[in-house]
Design a protein around this nucleic acid. Sequence first.
DNA 1: CTGAGCATGTAATCGGTTACATGATTCC
DNA 2: GGAATCATGTAACCGATTACATGCTCAG
Lengths: 173, 173
Amino acid sequence: MSASTTELAVLGLVAEAPRSGYDLAQIAARSTGFLWAPSRSQIYKVLPRLVQRGLARSEAVEQNGRPDKAVYELTATGREVLRTWIETVEEEPSGGAPVFLLKILFGFAASPEAVRAQIAAYRRLLERNLAVFERQEAGLPEDEPVYSLIALRHGIARARATLAWADEAERLL
Amino acid sequence: MSASTTELAVLGLVAEAPRSGYDLAQIAARSTGFLWAPSRSQIYKVLPRLVQRGLARSEAVEQNGRPDKAVYELTATGREVLRTWIETVEEEPSGGAPVFLLKILFGFAASPEAVRAQIAAYRRLLERNLAVFERQEAGLPEDEPVYSLIALRHGIARARATLAWADEAERLL
DNA sequence: CTGAGCATGTAATCGGTTACATGATTCC
DNA sequence: GGAATCATGTAACCGATTACATGCTCAG
């Protein structure tokens, strides 16, 4: 019943506008490319599955000069599954931080409140991680090689910057 | 011949100190946990493979009260493979940014110069990404929903913070 | 006439997860 | 007596990648 992140990401991109598998592969490389970028073949595997589950329907579009293409669009069920996913707050999504970003990116398919809730959950995750990093930093032995410290500071810097971004994001909403 | 990131991460952790599969699963959840965290069973699959390839050797350690354990340590070849990996600069590692961090974390197994080279490569990647994000931000249509902008700003904030971290890291070295 | 872009798909393979299986010891 | 920790592994499954296969059009 429950769908994978890849399926939901495809669902989200199709929700933006009806698209073909080929389109999705192109767009994924740009738009969501930094968050999630499956191979072409994986997209072609996922699309029929969505149709089979009643989340999308495909329409054959004839083109002159170019090969025909199958354009997919969401069904009402599909839109609802997407919305429910966006509205569901997971304290620690197994897909990691990118899941928060995807849900935010597809926020148009739900409500601003749902997006705010995702930002808040993301913030909580960042704060927990930051606390762990800072405790580890404090407990770092003197004789330890610098490398662990450098890696830790990477995590700290990113967590802090992302928390600052969360403030900005809430203002922008 | 070439090893996967997981194999090299295990190699790196074993290089720090001789460890058993069970140890590795525990440590991975802490130390490298945010960068790379495979399941226990995956670790138990990788370890014998490393032995078979001559990168590690295992030694049975008897314990009183507790089950015996197999402690793994690197061979000379293993240490060299690890060092070569750390010294190899990939402009765009398929494993993504975590690969840079892992190589830095295991820098003790190579030279400070190798680590500097990884930081420099990481920096170049960040600058390329940042340029892409900023171009996308500039080209964002007025009527676009805020969500794309918020997601973009996330990428920008993190890239900038990570570049600042790179400065700090080079100073720390 | 060759290569790039459009367009869709299958087959083989792999890296990895989840669940299963076992068994001793120690702490509550 | 029951749960948690130590300790190692196998089996089934799955999501995903790479390579393979096809075919048409348009630009250089």
